[in-house]
Amino acid sequence: IRCIGVSNRDFVEGMSGGTWVDVVLEHGGCVTVMAQDKPTVDIELVTTTVSNMAEVRSYCYEASISDMASDSRCPTQGEAYLDKQSDTQYVCKRTLVDRGWGNGCGLFGKGSLVTCAKFTCSKKMTGKSIQPENLEYRIMLSVHGSQHSGMIVNDTGYETDENRAKVEVTPNSPRAEATLGGFGSLGLDCEPRTGLDFSDLYYLTMNNKHWLVHKEWFHDIPLPWHAGADTGTPHWNNKEALVEFKDAHAKRQTVVVLGSQEGAVHTALAGALEAEMDGAKGKLFSGHLKCRLKMDKLRLKGVSYSLCTAAFTFTKVPAETLHGTVTVEVQYAGTDGPCKIPVQMAVDMQTLTPVGRLITANPVITESTENSKMMLELDPPFGDSYIVIGVGDKKITHHWHRSGSTIGKAFEATVRGAKRMAVLGDTAWDFGSVGGVFNSLGKGIHQIFGAAFKSLFGGMSWFSQILIGTLLVWLGLNTKNGSISLTCLALGGVMIFLSTAVSA
Results as ranks from 00 to 15, higher is better:
C3P: 00
N207T: 14
N208A: 15
M460Q: 09
C116S: 07
A227V: 10
K340Q: 03
G18E: 07
C190A: 04
S173E: 05
V114N: 05
G404K: 05
E276R: 00
F108K: 05
F453N: 13
H399P: 14
S72A: 15
M151Q: 03
F218W: 09
L358H: 05
S286W: 14
G458A: 10
V21I: 15
V364Y: 13
P342W: 13
F108P: 03
T126M: 10
P39V: 04
T160C: 09
H401L: 06
Q261S: 09
E168Y: 15
L477M: 14
D83H: 05
Q36H: 15
L186D: 04
V12P: 01
Y61N: 10
L141M: 11
D220P: 03
F312S: 12
M375G: 06
L273P: 12
M374N: 13
N134R: 04
L486A: 14
K316N: 01
F431Y: 08
A69G: 09
E191G: 11
M53D: 05
D384S: 03
Q36P: 12
M495F: 04
T360D: 05
F453G: 01
E216Q: 08
A241T: 14
T76K: 03
M15S: 00
A63S: 13
N237K: 15
S440F: 05
C60G: 04
I130R: 01
T254S: 15
M421D: 10
A501M: 13
V434P: 13
H226Q: 12
C339V: 02
K294G: 03
G184I: 05
V355M: 08
M53P: 00
H235V: 14
S173M: 10
L491R: 09
I448Y: 06
Q85P: 00
K209P: 01
S306T: 07
T470G: 13
I341E: 09
D37G: 15
S403F: 15
T313P: 00
Q85L: 10
A165L: 11
I466R: 00
P342D: 10
V23A: 09
G458D: 11
H210I: 02
S173A: 15
M68L: 12
A80N: 10
G150T: 13
K246P: 02
S403C: 00
G383L: 01
Y59G: 02
A504H: 10
G150Q: 15
V91T: 10
K443R: 14
P192E: 04
G29C: 15
I152A: 15
L212E: 08
C190R: 09
R99G: 10
V473S: 00
E26D: 10
A452D: 10
Y332R: 03
D348I: 00
S173G: 04
K209F: 08
G450I: 07
I445S: 08
F438C: 12
P174K: 08
V50Y: 03
P318E: 04
F431T: 10
H148V: 14
A410P: 05
W429K: 03
H214M: 12
M375Q: 00
A361W: 08
L498G: 02
Q465L: 04
L242D: 08
Y90R: 08
A35R: 01
L441W: 09
T500P: 05
L269N: 10
K294Q: 08
I396T: 15
E79Y: 07
L223C: 11
Q350G: 13
L467V: 15
S51W: 10
R193H: 11
V388L: 14
H401I: 11
T406F: 14
W429Q: 03
L489D: 12
Y81F: 07
A117Q: 04
N134L: 03
G492R: 10
G282C: 15
G493S: 13
L307M: 15
Q89F: 07
Y305N: 07
T40E: 06
A311Q: 14
L293Y: 03
I221M: 15
V257Y: 06
A428Q: 05
A275L: 00
M68P: 00
M349R: 12
A117P: 06
R193I: 03
S464V: 00
G111I: 03
L298E: 04
M53G: 00
F453C: 11
G417W: 07
W101Q: 04
A418G: 02
R416Y: 10
G324V: 04
V257E: 01
L467I: 14
S199T: 15
F457I: 12
M375E: 15
L25E: 08
A80L: 04
G263S: 09
G282Q: 03
R175K: 11
D67C: 03
S405Q: 07
C3E: 08
C3T: 02
G259R: 07
D296I: 04
L186K: 05
N237T: 02
I365T: 08
M206E: 05
S260P: 10
G324A: 12
A178P: 12
G78H: 03
G104E: 05
V415D: 07
A333I: 06
I407Y: 08
F382L: 12
D98S: 04
V415C: 10
C291P: 02
E79H: 09
I396N: 07
V326Y: 04
R94Y: 09
G100I: 05
W236L: 01
K118R: 15
H323Y: 11
R138F: 14
V46G: 11
R402L: 01
H446T: 00
T194P: 00
C308E: 07
V56T: 03
K454R: 15
T40M: 10
D189K: 06
R99H: 09
C308H: 10
H288S: 02
Q85G: 09
W217Y: 07
V46C: 06
V347G: 06
M125H: 07
D230T: 10
M125N: 08
L284R: 01
M495I: 14
A410H: 06
A264H: 09
N172D: 11
R2V: 06
T32P: 00
F314Q: 02
S7M: 13
T47H: 13
I43R: 03
A35C: 12
G28T: 13
V265A: 13
F119E: 05
V6C: 04
N362Y: 10
Q85V: 15
S146V: 00
A248M: 11
G181P: 06
H401A: 09
I396V: 14
D10S: 00
D10I: 01
S503K: 07
L284K: 03
K340V: 02
T360F: 05
G17T: 01
G392C: 01
